[in-house]
């Protein structure tokens, strides 16, 4: 609404591909409206670059509503930018001031290699999910949905964990590049629900093992992940993961490999 347009200087990480070295390139953007979203500002920059025949800045995005988890920008030293509980795609330029210099970097972590510019490969998360982030139930065989009542507080807490959008900001912000919050969110979601009980031992073991194999760091409880998580997933889920893991290691349970149904 306000026609108080701003001039912004952007320092953006440019990297041709996975193996090339990258560097920062500086762009000056006059006429930025405070009502623009951060990604719209990048769109605008890209339009200009393309008009000049230059390579557009690559960045992941899709829903632009803060739910798909695609956007992944480290903005001025913060995952998803300065606001709490907000993804980069929902960040608007009114959070910045005229004359600001904004440094934009990709997520930095060994298990998240850069594909191009600001785009990183987060398939490690999928592999962790594949290792055990599910309940083994075949299509068709489910009992009536109201067969198992679940106390509302429990269901709500499971939901809080399930709200994770898999964006990887937790890894990006963690000084150890630990994926604990992401993994904990899934483990916690399924461990809280009665449907998830039968496989809880195998699940937590398999997911942690895969997490380690992917090369994420170990958690030292700095809680930066919770602070930067756009869905504000609580680190109490990490505590639950730890408990589940200890329980799995200490209690001998008759639970098959993660998949018993085949």
């Amino acid at each position: 609404m306000a026609d108080t347009s701003m001039t912004i200087t952007l320092k953006v990480w440019r990297q041709k591909d996975r193996t090339s070295p990258g560097q920062f390139v500086t762009y000056t953007m006059p006429n930025i409206s405070p009502d623009m979203s951060f990604l719209e500002m990048l769109d605008l920059l890209n339009l200009e670059l393309v008009r000049k025949g230059e390579d557009a800045i690559a960045f992941d995005h899709d829903c632009r509503e803060g739910i798909c988890g695609s956007c992944s920008l480290y903005i001025n030293g913060r995952a998803h930018g300065p606001l709490r509980g907000v993804t980069a795609c929902q960040l608007h330029m009114r959070s910045f001031k005229d004359g600001d210099t904004i440094v934009v970097e990709p997520w930095r972590a060994k298990p998240f290699p850069v594909i191009k510019d600001l785009v990183v490969d987060r398939s490690a998360f999928d592999r962790i999910m594949t290792a055990g982030g599910f309940i083994s139930v075949r299509t068709g065989g489910a009992p009536d949905a109201n067969t198992i009542p679940i106390p509302k507080p429990v269901a709500d807490e499971a939901f809080d964990a399930a709200a994770c959008i898999g964006c990887g900001a937790c890894v990006a912000a963690c000084k150890n590049s630990s994926a604990m919050l992401f993994v904990a969110a899934k483990v916690s979601h399924l461990a809280l629900l009665p449907q998830g009980y039968p496989e809880r031992k195998a699940r937590v073991e398999a997911m942690v093992a895969q997490m380690d194999e992917e090369g994420f760091g170990s958690c030292t409880n700095t809680y930066a992940c919770e602070a930067e998580c756009p869905k504000q997933i609580s680190v109490s889920h990490i505590a639950r993961l730890n408990r589940e893991y200890l329980r799995a290691k200490m209690i001998e349970e008759k639970s098959g490999p993660v998949d018993c149904a085949g």
Binding site: F134, I135, V137, T139, G140, G141, A142, P143, D144, A145, I148, P149, I150, P151, K152, A155, D156, A158, F159, A162, H189, L190, L193, Q195, G196
Partner: peptide, 14 residues
């Protein structure tokens, strides 16, 4: 709905 609940979809509850 049955299928999703069995998968652990946390639908709203009373």
């Amino acid at each position: 709905i049955d299928q999703c609940v069995a998968q652990g979809v946390p639908f709203a509850r009373e």
